[in-house]
Design a protein around this nucleic acid. Sequence first.
DNA 1: GATCTAACTCCAGTTACATCA
DNA 2: TCTGATGTAACTGGAGTTAGA
Length: 253
Amino acid sequence: MSVLPTSSTCLELAISIPGFVSSQSLPSSGDHTGNGNGMRMMMKDLDINQVPTDSGGGGGGEEEWTTTVASREDEEEETNNGGASGPPRKKLRLTTEQSRILEETFRFNHSLNPKQKEDLAMQLKLKARQVEVWFQNRRARSKLKQTEIECEYLKRWFGSLREQNRRLQKEVEELRGIKVGHCDEPLHSASTLTMCPSCEQVAAATSTTTHDIDKGPIRTTASATNQTSLSSKVHTIHNHSRHPSAAFPHKIH
DNA sequence: GATCTAACTCCAGTTACATCA
DNA sequence: TCTGATGTAACTGGAGTTAGA
């Protein structure tokens, strides 16, 4: 079953399926715990809506704010003063250089502690709050991308399982026909014995029930002899296509 | 030590602006 | 020029954590 989705994105991702722990444990900023007080001090004088006075940094004139965004305080004042909707929200476009540096930083660290955030903000001539928002949005995008990839993979896996199930059902029908025709003869045709590729032994009969993904359990009346083939296939499927996450814990960068 | 509260972070969901076809 | 789709910066509200009173 080679349905491994290949990816060339720069997102660092890992399959996480319900019931399985996502392998992406973002490095905690640690400053949930650590620099709380310092952060409080810093956050006090943040003004996200302050227009950068220097527009020349890195972007060669590309860096520019279209306008300022009304601060919360200003909005509150606006609201209090008249209830009007206030000035339209304007939006910064990050320069390619800013985006590049942010992406670069994100590659190594998915979340920043207050010091890192402040330093990066200073480097990029942005507000710490903007850097924080960017990282939040970036994590969200990363997660979304991961979900899409997982979804795509699960679709393929589902299709593969359905196909396997279809084949097994067909085989059951064939065995039924054979049994009717040669009820006294043992069925040890080599073609019906499946070797487990990893265990390198013919799988023992198991009590596993094969489920048709669409229609529920397959009811089979195959004899014990006939079951050798079927159950070994079941064994194979059970052990080797049990779950995609185990087989394809891929990461995307 | 237990409790409360303030300050902070994160996330999920949403809004709204900028850009492009 | 207008318009709908798309990308994304920014906002909102809730939940969780921590430190200090």
